Amino acid sequence: MLARDPGIDVVGTAADPLIAREKIQRLRPDVLTLDIEMPRMSGLEFLEQLMRMRPMPVVMVSTLTERGAAATLQALSLGAVDVVAKPKASVAAEFERSAADIVARVKHAARARIRPAVRGEPTPPVSVLPARTPVIPSGPSAVRPMPATAAEGDAHLIALGASAGGTEALRVVLQGLPAHAPAVVLAQHLPANFSAAFAERLDRHSAMHVREARDGEDILPGHAYIPPGGRHLAVVRHGRGWRCAVEDGPPVNRHKPAVDVLFHSVARHAGARAIGALLTGMGDDGARGLLAMRVAGARTLVQDEATSVVWGMPGAAMRLGAAADALPLDGIASRLLELSRPHASVA
């Protein structure tokens, strides 16, 4: 399926990691697609060695199982760029849809900024989505954000969005927030079966309680909510606070969950009481939603290009004028807390 695309040259294949190691040294590919379960050495062990000795863009090809999800999230923590679901060759239509998905991700991965795993990051033992080219309809001069006030109360809602590289970026941000932080709602592009494992992983690394959202539940401070697998997450106003709305609508920007669905709902129902941050990711999902949040009076920011694995989504947001600030990843949590304080200054 990769070789059929005129923009990709498949320079080699390998039946196991030891063969792959020799071919990588000799053929010097731009991107590697990597299965987790292979003979002679696991894909995770090979990936860890590869990222230490010769960091390069790697797209994981994973089974949509609980075991596959846990292993793939570990691979992303080791430095893999993205993940695609292993296609079912027995279903022709699904195989063709998977082909387009994998081709798109491999092409995007070739432009990724590779960041090996952070030293000291715990990796628990274990026994990839399409993106659109950013379309920028107008310059930031057309944007006139409403004044940010907290007239409806001091409680804030933090909304986060991410795609490629986002599993680790979100971990870093949530790890930097205290147990009493404002409520967080987030959307990350992942295969549907991965959401439970992702929520559990984030919960282990955060003082906040991280969980899959349930439709209609109250959004509480000190809690972070992610969409359940293959569903959109939105927020709705409830009294002086908010509730989760889990929706089974069509994909938006070819994604489900989509960051734009979340951000547009936050703009409508939280307005100036919201803070939005768009992190590393391919394409432009979330850029227009972040713009809507800023126009509604929310404080908004993006992850900077230097620390993003892929500066697609945050770059598109900056070009739209959706955010005034682009911050390094390790400075985002503290900035979110600063903006959530009453009477925080806004540029």
Rank of each mutant, 00 (worst) to 15 (best):
V135I: 07
G120E: 01
D285W: 09
S42T: 15
G153E: 01
V266N: 04
A100N: 04
N253D: 03
E305W: 13
A15S: 13
A155N: 05
V346S: 15
S163G: 01
L50C: 01
R52N: 10
R211W: 05
A110D: 05
V11W: 11
L339K: 00
I332M: 10
A164H: 12
V172F: 01
V31T: 11
P134Y: 12
A85S: 15
G321M: 04
Q74K: 15
R26W: 00
T65M: 03
P257G: 06
S90G: 01
R132C: 04
A287F: 10
M313K: 00
M51G: 03
L339E: 07
L339S: 05
L327C: 00
R254K: 09
A93R: 15
V103F: 02
D203W: 10
I8K: 06
D325C: 09
R54M: 11
D285P: 11
V61G: 00
S138Q: 15
L32D: 00
D101V: 13
S265D: 13
H223V: 06
C244D: 00
R113D: 11
F198V: 09
L279F: 09
M51D: 04
L157H: 07
M60K: 01
R67H: 04
H255S: 13
G120M: 01
G239W: 08
L27G: 12
I36V: 08
S195M: 12
R132E: 14
V58K: 01
D260R: 11
V83D: 01
D9K: 15
I102D: 05
S163N: 00
K107V: 00
L44G: 11
M41Q: 14
A117F: 03
E338P: 01
E212T: 14
E168D: 15
L76P: 08
A181Y: 02
D203C: 12
D284W: 06
V81E: 08
A187F: 09
L129H: 03
E66K: 07
R21H: 14
D304C: 12
E45K: 06
A3R: 15
S141R: 08
D154P: 10
H156I: 02
R273Y: 04
S334D: 14
G7H: 06
V118E: 12
G281M: 10
S206D: 03
V31E: 07
G79M: 08
P130T: 14
A131H: 12
G176R: 07
P116H: 09
M146R: 15
E200W: 04
S62F: 03
G120N: 01
A142K: 04
G7V: 00
E37C: 02
R211V: 15
M1E: 05
R294N: 00
P178F: 03
A179D: 10
D248S: 13
P57T: 01
A333W: 07
S42F: 07
A69T: 05
V246I: 10
S77G: 13
A274G: 14
D284G: 00
P250Y: 06
A162H: 13
A142I: 05
R204G: 02
D285S: 08
A75K: 11
E212K: 12
I275H: 05
